[in-house]
Design a protein around this nucleic acid. Sequence first.
RNA 1: GGUGACGUGGCCGAGUGGUCAGGCAGAGGCCUGCAAAGCCUCCUACGGCGGUUCGAAUCCGCCCGUCACCUCCA
Length: 514
Amino acid sequence: MSPPTFRLYNTLTHETEPVEPIEDEHLRFYSCGPTVYTYAHIGNFRSFLTADLIRRTAEAIGWDVTNVSNITDVGHLTQDDLVDPGGEDKMQQALEREGERFANIYDLARHYTDAFLKDWRALNLREPEVRPRATEHVTDQLEAVIELVETGHAYTTDKGVYFRVDSVEDYGQLSGNTESEQLRATERDTVDDPEKKDPRDFALWKHDPDHLMHWHSPWGWGFPGWHIECSVMGMRYLGEKFDLHTGGEDLIFPHHDCEIAQNKALTGGPAVNYWVHTRFLQVEGEKMSKSKGNFYTVRDLIAPAPDDDHVPAPIRTQGGVDPLALRYTLLQGQYRKPFNFTLDTLRTAARHVQRFRDASDRVDEAIEADVDGPDPLGPKLGDCYDRMLAAMCDDLNTPAATAAALEGVRHIEDADTLSGAAAHSARFWLDRTNDLLGIIESETEDEPPAKEDTSPLSGSQFATSVDAVLQDREDARANGEYARADAIRDTLEALGIEVMDRPEGPEWRRKVEL
RNA sequence: GGUGACGUGGCCGAGUGGUCAGGCAGAGGCCUGCAAAGCCUCCUACGGCGGUUCGAAUCCGCCCGUCACCUCCA
């Protein structure tokens, strides 16, 4: 059958539209990446997950994909209008906070970039084709700013260079913030540059020789404005026109509106056809914030570090969550709707991921055994896959897609026996499901994040001793000493070992504790 | 105040005019020495008020509520 039409909601048109790449069957898109001044939290990754799902869906319908995802490692000011030398940026603040950990601002950026990439892989996000860093493209940015000044789209003041918003058509089209007067009326009480000609004008270059990161420019030492880096890096790696651009909903204004304006000024027309924005998530029904104690970074959940001050106390003794369970959790909400992240959902997700894994193991055994027999699974699973793909193509409807996937795994579980033929069908389905949703097995080389292992024994030694204890319990059961058998089970449970008595003998696994 | 999004059962979340979403939790049952896991059954909602229609969670209007952005937060 022909693949379904891939449709996405376009912030620019307020409609869900068929995605039609400029180059047939080749999707080229840019994803706004993080500013690396701290560990990324699960909300950040909800947005990056959207980009990953766009990639996977496009690949599933046979398209090529070129994705550029940047790292913002230049510290930008916390207030755009505050272009005085005393202004601080987030990276500088981070360095002051953690000065003892890092030699300098570049060291800090490197540390958090590495941490970010590690989390990226842990969540089984596919690697973008290009991952440019802002600090490595300052020359490109400078050239763009010079061009904008020369073409009259920008002007200089003592404090920097500003983009002249009224030099392009339809500024603010993306957000709907089109009224100059409106922005003026709501301007915050910040230090303004009196030489700015329009309150909407934004900085392309900031004059500041004391900034921790500074570069030489025709206007003296300083650093680039925030919006210009994405315009420049997007065009450099994807061309003057490309298909799609992703980011968090907070970036709609001003960042993406500014980017659109810059691109128009530089190329004479808009660069991007589709804008896709991911809604913020909430945690336990509230805005995620450090003061509420519901602020989760990826590493908090998947690999707790009890001595790390970044890990909030309420979960410092928890964590150890399967990163794919975290991924599965984030799939329970469609990217464009508010999503309420709860530990309860995470707990459930961990169980579901385990079901996929158990089914996968069983299928592998059945392939090995290769018993003759019919294949009742093939058609059912084929149908499940079709519905999964259709759901993904329908504006990344991940809740519907995971529902169909769960139905598929139930078909495998329900089969009393798996013939070789059925097992091969199941293997094919599991692999394609994992390709599309990435929820069964990680594709990365990284070691799985160290689960908290308080045992002094290594993994295999530990397993051997658990097996020995279980044998003792089996002996007790055989002798009818049920009180002793239950005591052994309770002891193991207290150690985080879950015991299941199967017809073929006892089985155990580590409990998922949240 | 401006801009944009969203309101579905105890909870999370599909569903865009008429037939079951699904999951979690809960209740009962099967299985088990007892459990756990798994399986079966049950629980049936659409923020409010109008309107369109033979028929609306689904379309329209108004209201209420939640969230986000309004100069650097994904």
